[in-house]
Amino acid sequence: MNRDPRSPCPIATTLDIVGDRWTLVVVRDLLTGKKRFSEFLDSPEGIATNVLSDRLALIEQAGLVTKAPYQLRPKRFEYTLTTKGEDLLPTLQEMSRWANRHIRGTWTPPESFMAKKIP
């Protein structure tokens, strides 16, 4: 990212990138195979288009994804996680386990997600 971290604390610097309510949801969707803007909009959380555009730009700037055009008129992109983005997988798996243990009513992620390993 272009701005200096607010502190050298690894938790604070990570939260500067992924600490809003949407970024890790988008990363989750990428980890489960979504690549296109319309696919992210289909997620049950109901992210607004302007917020999704902002988060995709943020995670691209942070080096978590790359984008490549799949259509020229109108120009549309597919997003792919970089190694840096894929490395968030264990964190999301542990967050899922924590929520399942401590927050009533959370759904259990598919075994395909929970068993997935970093390439």
Rank of each mutant, 00 (worst) to 15 (best):
P74C: 09
E94A: 14
K67E: 00
Q93M: 12
P5Q: 03
L88T: 03
S7F: 06
L24A: 04
A99Q: 11
G63K: 03
P109C: 08
G105S: 13
L89F: 05
D29R: 10
P90K: 13
T108V: 14
L72K: 08
P119A: 07
V26T: 04
A62W: 10
G105M: 13
A68I: 11
R101W: 13
L88C: 04
F113G: 08
V51L: 10
V25E: 14
Y70Q: 10
G63N: 03
C9E: 13
F37Q: 06
F37I: 05
R104G: 14
A12P: 03
V18H: 06
D42A: 10
P110I: 09
N50L: 11
K117E: 11
T108F: 11
A115Y: 05
P69H: 06
N100A: 15
I59F: 00
R101N: 15
L24Y: 05
A57E: 06
S43P: 03
L41P: 02
P90Y: 14
P8M: 12
S96T: 01
V65A: 03
P119K: 06
W107E: 12
I59G: 00
V51I: 14
S43Y: 08
F113H: 09
T66V: 09
E78A: 07
K75Q: 08
P109L: 10
T13Y: 13
L58A: 13
P8I: 12
V26D: 00
D87P: 11
L92Y: 03
S43H: 10
P110T: 09
Y79E: 00
M114N: 07
L58E: 12
E86C: 02
A62P: 10
I59C: 01
I11D: 09
T82K: 02
A57M: 03
P44A: 15
M114T: 05
L72N: 08
T80S: 04
I47P: 01
W107M: 11
R6V: 05
P109M: 10
R36H: 09
T13G: 11
L41S: 06
S43R: 07
A99L: 11
R73G: 07
P109V: 09
D29E: 14
K67V: 01
S96V: 00
E111W: 06
T91I: 15
L41I: 11
T82I: 03
F113C: 08
K75R: 09
F37P: 02
V65Q: 00
W98D: 15
H102Q: 15
L31R: 00
R6W: 05
L41C: 06
R104E: 15
V27L: 04
E60P: 02
N50E: 13
K67A: 01
S112V: 08
D54T: 13
W22Y: 03
E94T: 13
P44T: 15
I47H: 03
I47R: 04
Q71W: 05
L88I: 07
L15K: 10
K84Y: 04
D29V: 07
A48K: 13
P10D: 08
S43E: 10
P90L: 14
V65D: 00
S112Y: 08
W107G: 11
A12E: 14
R97P: 12
G105C: 12
T83V: 09
D87K: 15
